[in-house]
Design a protein around this nucleic acid. Sequence first.
DNA 1: GCACGTCCCTGAAACGTTTCAGCACCATGG
DNA 2: CCATGGTGCTGAAACGTTTCAGGGACGTGC
Lengths: 331, 331
Amino acid sequence: MVGIKDVAKRAGVSIGTVSNVVNRPHVVAAATRNRVLSVIEELGYVRDESARQLRAGRSRIMGLLVLDLGNPFFVDVARGAEQAAHAEGLNIITCNSGQRSDLEASYLAMFAEQRVRGVLLSPVGTSGEALRAFRRSGTPYVFVDRKAPTSEASSVAVDDIAGGALAARHLLETGHHRIAFVNGPAILAQCRDREQGLRTALEGAAVELTVLEAIGLDVASGRDAGARLLGTIPRPTAVFCANDLLALGVLQAMVGAGVRVPDEMAIVGYDDIEFAGAAAVPLTSVRQPAQRLGRTAAELLLAETADTTVEHQAVVFTPELVVRESTRVRR
Amino acid sequence: MVGIKDVAKRAGVSIGTVSNVVNRPHVVAAATRNRVLSVIEELGYVRDESARQLRAGRSRIMGLLVLDLGNPFFVDVARGAEQAAHAEGLNIITCNSGQRSDLEASYLAMFAEQRVRGVLLSPVGTSGEALRAFRRSGTPYVFVDRKAPTSEASSVAVDDIAGGALAARHLLETGHHRIAFVNGPAILAQCRDREQGLRTALEGAAVELTVLEAIGLDVASGRDAGARLLGTIPRPTAVFCANDLLALGVLQAMVGAGVRVPDEMAIVGYDDIEFAGAAAVPLTSVRQPAQRLGRTAAELLLAETADTTVEHQAVVFTPELVVRESTRVRR
DNA sequence: GCACGTCCCTGAAACGTTTCAGCACCATGG
DNA sequence: CCATGGTGCTGAAACGTTTCAGGGACGTGC
C-alpha cells in the first residue's frame, strides 16, 4: 500500500510537504505542488484516514443508529440527517439495530471505538446497560424520535401522546365505540406514549378499548394482529395501529378475510409513510416530519460538537392527521 | 480521553500487559488480569480503533453502498449482508448513493480512506471515473445486483433479462397486445436488461410496445409515468414497471383516474417488495432473492479478503414471477 | 554591506495501539 | 548444584499521518 513516504521520496520532497499539498495546497509553491500532485496521481496514493484521525484525535464521521431500516420512516430520518451532515462535510454511517438490544450495544461500542464525532440515536430500551457504558465513553449523542431529559442529552422527537390523541379523537368523531389498538413492543417509548395519548383522549367517552400487543412493528406482525383482531368478539369497528407497517398488515388480514375497510373496520396508522397512500385502501395516518427530525437532530449534534458549552435542547415536533379512505365515513 | 497508558499506570503494569488483557486474556495471570480489568472498568477505558487499525493495517469494517435505501429491496440486501458480516465478527456500514454519481464517488473515497476490509457495491454508472479511482486503491469489492466480468471482480446478481422475459410472457399469456414499459434511468444496467428481456420475449408477437422512461425509480416517478400513460392513445391494456415503487406509483395514478386494475390496465412490478402484496390492488411482481443476494455477496467478499488467491465468481440467481390481482384475468 | 522579511521547505515529535524479543523468576529433573 | 523449560511481565519499535519550530535562500530597504 502506497503511503505518504513513497510519494515524498518519488517527488523528491519531505513528507511534510506532501501533507501540505494535500491539506493546505496554498502554502506550497505551484511547481512543487504540481509535481507532488502528479506523483500522487501516478502512484494512486490514498491517505489513510485512521492515521489521520489518530493524529487529529477526532473523526469526520457521524453515526446514526436507527430502530428499523425496514421502516421507511427511519429511511427518511436518515435522509434528513445525511443532508445536514454533508452540509458540514461529514459522512454519516447508518446502522440498524432492528430493535435488538444486543445489536444496539454492539453498534454503540463500535461508534465509541471509532471515536465518531457524535451519534444520532433512536434507542431500543430506556436506559440499558449498553447506553450507560456508551455514555461513559464521552461520545456526544442526540436522541432521535425520543424525548429525553435535557440534563442528559439533546433530543428531537415528535409528540407521540398528541399523535395518539389525534387518532383517538378522529375515531370518536367518525362514530366508533368499539376500538382496538394494535401496539408494538411496550419497551419502546413511542409505543407507550401513543397508547397513553389514545387512552387519555378516550377517557370519559363510552368506548370499549381492546389492546393487542404485536410482536414487532412490521407488516407480518400486523397480519398476525389482524388475524387475532378478527377473532375478537364483539369485533371492534375501528383499529388504530402504532405504525403504518402494522396497519398495512392489519389491512391485508382484513382484505384477506373479506372484511370491508372502512365499512366494517376503519384503520388508522402512524408515520404516514409513502406506501400508506398506495395501500389497498389508502390509509389514514398520523404524519411525522421524518426528514426534518433527522436534519434537526444532526444540526443539534453538530452544534454541540462544535461548541461544548452549548446547552442541551429538547425539540418536539407536532404530528398531523392525514385522513384517507380507511376511515372515510360512507353514507 | 483515557488511553491504554492511563490504565497501565493506574494498574501498575506495562502497556503491553494491558493490551494483552484486552486481546489475549489467557496469557496474563489471573490476578493481574482482574486488577487490570477493574481499572479499565473504573476509568471507562475504550480502545481507540483508529490506532488499532493503523497498527494492524486493516479494519474490521465492511462497506455497503446501495443505490437507494428508500427501496425496500435494498434494505433486504443490506440485511442479508449484515448477517453474513456479523457471522464473521465484522461490522457493516451502509451508505446510500441515491443513484447520484457524486455521492457514490464520495462514499467510495471514504471507504478507501478508511481502509475498509472490502466493499459491496451496487454502482450507478457502468464504469465511472469514481470507480476507476476506487479500483486503484486496491480495496477489494464485489458487485451486488449487477453482473460484472469475473476478470474485474466478483458479482452477485439476478438475471434481469430473464426477469423482463418472465413479465413479458405473463402479459402475453394473459392476452395483452398493447403493452407499456415504464423504465427507470437507462444509466442503470438493471433497467437496460429488464427492457432487453422484455423486448426479446415480445419479439414476433403481435404487440404494440410503448416505452416510457421515468425520472427516478420511486413512487413519485411512477405517479408521473402513470399520468403520462393515461394520455397515451390508444391506451395500453397492460404496463410492466422496472420496479415495484414505479408500479405502486402507476397504480396510484390509475386508481386516482378511476381506471380499473387489472380490467382496464394490468400492472406488473419488479422486486416483489413487501408492500407489493399490500397495495390497492395486490401487485404481480418479479421476485428477486434480495436477502440472499446480500448474504452471498458478503460471503464472497469475505472469502476473497481471507485468501487473495481465490478467483472471482459471477453468481447469478434466477427471478421468479409472483402472480397477484393486478394481472388476474377476470371473466 | 547589513538587517530584516518573506517564502518554501525540512525534520522530528506525537497520536494510541499491537507485537515481539528479551528478561526475571521459579520449578523441575538430572 | 546446574541445566532446562515455562510463565509472566517489560520496553521499545512500528504503523501513517499532521503539525510546528526552525532554517536556508532570496529579495528589499536603509
